[in-house]
């Protein structure tokens, strides 16, 4: 089956397409019954995106619990939140996640993408295996890495048989090592995804640039820094923000690696884990959990707004 439709090549196109047809906007020649087509989509959108968004903000100013609607308490939840050590721990962990994971997501996938962009069949094999982890669930990935990082798991066993260590490294029980282990898992899982985004950017670089550099005697490393990196600059910006937003929201990896406990003493809890812990269950403080949610929405929203501003400025 030949596909006759050009595929969209990235988020950028999704944003630009409507504006390309702007001159049609004022015309209403298909009539208001056109709206009927959008009903199923709007139903889900309003019910599960915009309503919960507004309700989260409202609830954050109430003392509601799971089974009690509660009443308006003003800023009380936020005051409690900012006095809670657990909140600051979660905010620290999630922020640290962004700071540590994002540089890897920016650089490693680009190197991978330029290594597998073109070449013989075997390169295609590497490309395929590299993006396979992307389709796996974070739970399976978490289970696999729990086995590997266990005090008696493969990695400790290798280190011990090489006599690098005598006692196992507590990858999953130390406060900081647990967080770094989870970051490793996130990176393992994300490399292929960002590699694919870089691959579509690499495809847009004019190959004659590389040929010219070759003639000038520039080696592969020179070419990488002189042509590849500048050529994918806007994609790098995109990945910077995409990976920041998704690193800040991390949940499954930390949850599975710590067996749902958030680490020893809950010291490895992340923002999303805190929302899940405070906001679900019969005695959940839904108002308080909503205040945490609002903080998450504001931070992720700020990341997104900054990204949009930079992308818009780049377009002009």
């Amino acid at each position: 089956m030949a596909r006759s439709v050009t595929q969209p090549q990235g988020r950028g196109d999704a944003r630009n397409a409507p504006s390309a047809r702007r001159h049609h906007r004022a015309i209403d020649d298909d009539g208001p019954s056109s709206w009927l087509f959008t009903i199923p989509a709007f139903f889900i959108l309003l019910l599960f995106v915009f309503y919960p968004f507004l309700n989260t903000i409202r609830l954050s100013f109430t003392n509601s619990r799971m089974l009690i609607p509660g009443h308006w308490v003003g800023m009380e939840n936020y005051v409690k939140l900012f006095q809670s050590d657990q909140f600051w721990t979660a905010l620290l962990n999630s922020s640290l996640y962004v700071v540590c994971v994002v540089p890897f997501m920016l650089i490693l996938p680009l190197i991978l993408a330029s290594l597998v962009a073109k070449g013989p069949k075997i390169i295609g094999f590497f490309r395929t295996t590299y993006y396979f982890p992307v389709v796996l669930s974070a739970v399976v990935i978490g289970l696999i890495w729990t086995n590997l990082l266990d005090s008696r798991g493969l990695i400790n066993s290798i280190f011990q048989s090489l006599h690098w260590i005598t006692t196992p490294i507590p990858f999953l029980t130390d406060r900081w090592l647990t967080l770094f282990s989870a970051m490793l898992v996130t990176i393992w899982e994300g490399l292929g995804y960002y590699m694919i985004i870089y691959l579509s950017a690499l495809a847009n670089i004019d190959p004659s640039l590389y040929e010219a550099a070759e003639i000038d005697g520039a080696g592969p490393i020179r070419q990488f820094f002189a042509i590849t990196v500048p050529g994918v600059r806007s994609t790098m910006t995109l990945i910077l923000f995409l990976s920041s937003a998704s690193a800040f929201r991390v949940f499954s990896e930390v949850y599975v690696l710590t067996r749902g406990s958030g680490g020893v003493g809950g010291e490895d809890i992340t923002m999303t884990m805190l929302i899940q812990r405070e906001g679900t269950g019969l005695s959940a403080r839904t108002g308080y959990a909503s205040a945490i949610s609002v903080v998450l929405l504001i931070i992720v929203g700020a990341i997104t707004v900054i990204q949009q501003l930079i992308v818009r400025r780049g377009d002009d």
Partner: peptide, 24 residues
Amino acid sequence: FAHGLFALAMLMPTEGLLVSTFLL
């Protein structure tokens, strides 16, 4: 406008909507 709402929704982190979605 309608199309813009979907673009906006795409950027919404569902983790932040978890509690309200559950209540709904």
